[in-house]
Amino acid sequence: MENLKTILEEIRPGVDFDTCENLIDGHILDSLAIISLIADIEDEFDITIPTVEIIPKNFNSAEAMWKMIQRLTEDEE
C-alpha cells in the first residue's frame, strides 16, 4: 500500500490519499494522470491491468486501487 501511495503522491502531490474517495469523480486524477498511474502500477507490482478494470470504481480511492492490485496479483499467480 505504501508503494502505491508513493506513486500517487508523485503523480498528484498534495492530495490526502488516505481519505480521498473521489479521485476520478472529483476530477483530481485526469486522463493523463491515469495513464501514468497505470503504467507505474504495472511496473511496480508486475501485473497487467486489463481495460475492463479501468473504471472509476477501481480508481476513486487508494483503497480501491489496492484491492484491484491484490485481486489482479492473485489472478496472475
Binding site: S31, I34, I35, I38, A39, I49, T51, I54
Partner: peptide
C-alpha cells in the same frame, strides 16, 4: 475510445 486506445498494446509500448 480514450482508455481502450491508451491501454492498447501498441500505446503501452509507446508510452513505456
Amino acid at each position: 475510445v480514450y482508455y481502450p486506445v491508451s491501454f492498447s498494446w501498441a500505446s503501452k509500448r509507446l508510452g513505456a
